[in-house]
Design a protein around this nucleic acid. Structure first.
Length: 488
RNA sequence: GGCGACGUAGCCAAGUGGUAAGGCAGAGGACUGCAAAUCCUUUAUUCCCCGGUUCGAAUCCGGGCGUCGCCUCCA
């Protein structure tokens, strides 16, 4: 049984989907006027992991993530750069995919854009006007919050409370200060579309309602996004959608916590943000993803290089385990019927699988799931050590089982997105011909070092090892021979 | 001002009534020519503080202190 923390009820609830065996998800995507920063990346990775786990559990998942490609910030940026707003937005959509790919985020089943859903948006606004929930003032259309009796149910606040606050926007033409724009009258030089209320463009909130309703329909299962979207964005989505359809909009609302820097929210306005691609220059995408999943998704996660570096070391441990496991599987010297010790190992693996699922069932507790993954790695290492010390042989069948479990965990979390180092170099920047040459050169150097070691000339051997390490080539002398890999 | 979240070892971080997971860093040991990797042992009598409930609390309740967030665009 999967339990999900629902912002709407502020408690964990059993996941009961609209249709048995199917899950429909909508996650708010970025406004594409810049490269994404780490704070933007967290929901991508978090909800991608939710999706992967649901798929692992056998659900057929329909996953929709929008792009906001019509927006004030895009228009302003385009004006500054003298570029067409939609072209600029499309450029950053392409860049978004480059970052998302590096973080091993699966493509959504649909990536709708605002600019391609104007008719649906207009239709929805018209429905709201017809139903008496919205009003047109000289080409601007507003949603009338006082007409929607449940306004505030998601964010847990009342209209009266909010208006007691000092920072409510003052706009004389609105009936109520909290009323929000559904349709904005066109201004010169801005992208606009014809509508029954004159040329204009959609307000921010209506797009998600229109697109979610189009692709998933009312009453879809999970709506996700960052904590800061609860109010006003998601509150307004609920108001619009439920006013228009008279049905529940989404069953479960999930919100991820913030990335912080020195405990303060990472945000553009504070200027304390780090672009995903800046971080990727220092750390591989798999490390960034692992780091993002090392804390429960609802908790804040403080970012700095030391913390990611610690994650990198931890992930290294898991990769070493998988490398050794695969080496053992390639070694045809193993293979023997299971004995008592093997049976214990097998039982432990069964328990790890249960523990992993239990952790993920509990509101997608990836931090706990990762701990189970480490436990599995340790047991595998212990088992493999039996082989190395020659005290006993290990069962090939159990090694395969262990590898399968390891890769299952990995696939659910989506961490390691390529074949782990097999001792072979990965020089992505170079041509394969260069790769081959470099490999041969390294092997030649290692041969020379081995000759020095045979002669007990350890000064030379160590100098070579240190020198290679300085170049990022790690040498390991093992009972099975010399191994080397490129440090990543 | 209103609403909300959080405070667990040097650092990160699980754990919401039954006697403190896991990772990083540190210490000792095994293995190694030395390393690396791996394994073993070890590192919080205690979970911000003070009261209370309970046979029993990191976990529940009350108060305090501290940090952060939302209420305006923000993931």
């Amino acid at each position: 049984m999967i339990e999900v923390y629902n912002t709407l009820t502020r408690r964990k609830e059993k996941l009961e989907t609209r249709e048995p065996g199917r899950v429909s998800m909508y996650v708010c995507g970025p406004t594409t006027y810049n490269y994404i920063h780490l704070g933007n990346a967290r929901p991508l990775v978090v909800f991608d992991t939710v999706r992967r786990y649901l798929m692992y559990k056998g659900y057929q998942v329909t996953y929709v993530q929008n792009f906001t490609d019509v927006d004030d910030k895009i228009i302003n940026k385009a004006r500054e750069e003298g570029e067409d707003p939609l072209a600029l937005a499309q450029r950053y959509i392409n860049e978004y995919f480059s970052d998302a790919d590096a973080l091993n985020v699966m493509r959504a089943d649909n990536h709708p854009k605002v600019s391609e859903h104007i008719p649906e948006i207009i239709e929805l606004i018209q429905k709201l006007i017809d139903g008496g929930y919205a009003y047109n003032i000289d080409g601007d259309v507003f949603f009338e919050v006082r007409k929607f009796k449940n306004y505030g149910k998601l964010s847990g606040r009342s209209l009266d409370e909010m208006q007691a606050g000092a920072r409510v926007e003052v706009n004389a033409i609105k009936k109520d200060p909290m009323d929000f724009a559904l349709w904005k009258k066109a201004k010169p030089g801005e992208p606009s579309w014809p509508s029954p209320w004159g040329d204009g463009r959609p307000g921010w909130h209506i797009e998600c309602s229109a697109m979610a309703l189009k692709y998933l329909g009312a009453g879809f299962d999970i709506h996700g996004g960052g904590y800061d979207l609860i109010f006003p964005h998601h509150e307004n989505e609920i108001a619009q959608s439920e006013a228009a359809t008279q049905e529940v909009f989404a069953r479960y609302w999930m919100h991820n916590g913030f990335i912080t820097v020195n405990k303060e929210k990472m945000s553009k306005s504070l200027g304390n943000f780090f672009l995903v691609r800046e971080i990727l220059e220092k750390f591989p995408g798999e490390v960034v993803r692992f780091y993002l999943l090392s804390t429960h998704y609802r908790s804040p996660l403080d970012f700095d290089d030391q913390k990611i570096a610690a994650s990198q070391k931890g992930l290294e441990r898991l990769k070493n385990c998988l490398n050794m496991l695969r080496e053992a599987l390639e070694d045809n010297g193993v293979g023997e019927a299971a004995n008592e010790h093997d049976r214990q190992f097998s039982e432990k693996m069964g328990r790890f699988k249960e523990a992993f699922e239990k952790a993920m069932d509990d509101d997608f507790n990836t931090a706990l799931a990762i701990a189970v993954w480490f436990d599995l790695a340790k047991e595998i290492n212990v088992y493999l050590n039996k082989l190395k010390t020659g005290k006993t042989r290990v069962s090939l069948e159990l090694l395969r089982e262990a590898e399968e479990l390891f890769t299952t965990f990995n696939h659910v979390l989506g961490i390691l997105n390529e074949a782990p180092d097999s001792g072979k170099i990965l020089l992505e920047e170079n041509t394969s011909a260069d790769n081959e040459l470099v490999e041969k050169l390294i092997e030649l150097i290692i041969d020379i070092r081995q000759q020095a070691r045979k002669k007990k000339d350890f000064d030379t051997a160590d100098a070579i090892r240190d020198g290679l390490k300085g170049l990022g080539i790690i040498i390991q002398d093992t009972p099975q021979g010399v191994k080397w890999k490129k440090q990543r």
